[in-house]
Amino acid sequence: MDAKVNVTVDLSSPKYQVKQESKVVKVLIYIFLALWTFVNLFPIYWMFTFSLKDNKEIFGENVAGLPHNWLWSNYTDAMNTGHMNVYFVNSIIVAVMTILITLIAALMATYAITRMTWKFSKQMNAFFMMGLTIPIHASIVPIYVTLSNIHMLNTYWALIIPYAAFALAMAILICSGFMGDIPRDLDEAARIDGCGIWGIFFRIIVPLMRPALATIGIYTFLQCWNELMFANIFNSKDALKTLPVGIQALSGQYTTNWGPIGAALVIATFPTLLVYIFLSKKIQESFIAGAIKG
């Protein structure tokens, strides 16, 4: 919708009265927002507190308050017997490799699609965009069968490659937005200076794409950090499990002792929340960028 309306009216003129909400409505709005804030924060708060309590406090003495005894041993339990430190490292390895592969493949493909002239570049873009709607279920059986045939189940690659492939469509979408903003004169100038296509790509485009890399990196990180279905099926070895699968295993192990489970949940959550505290705007943008084009 275009803003064709010109506001020429003097706002202070008494002829026009802008209706303000009554005090009651305003108070009700804030009560509603406060209530919703509570609903959002309370489970997270509760998770942090019970990760530091023993069963006696969790199960009755002190259900919702801050822990009386800060029981850090829950965390050492989660790591020593629950192997959360191993799962944590695995998740990091998988996430970092996935992000690297996604970024390289997406940057190169986007460059070919948006900055090189050839006949079917539009169709190629549409082809990649199909990936936005394909559910991961679609490929689970063939990937499982193939991975098992080539003996690649129970390796990091069994997760990294599928994750990168499924992150690709979104990465290309975000990349083309950013790459379109880089002026073409830069390519021209570099070409006149004797730069080849690869030179332009590595020396001009890639360094200018840093903000896009952050956006894609964040989005891809969250996808693989939290993914369960593939991780659960393609890796059954303890030494290779990622956090979501590891937590499932741990909760089977500690059905009656809640503290270490709480600690495991916190271990899996705090990196994302920590990053969110510093980069909330960037993270929100990465989610918007992915959906708005639709």
Binding site: I101, Y111, T146
Partner: peptide, 18 residues
Amino acid sequence: LFLLPALILFVGVLIAPI
């Protein structure tokens, strides 16, 4: 060559399995 890595991933993991 620029398209190759993306194509291998995309066709190998999404299109062919479907």
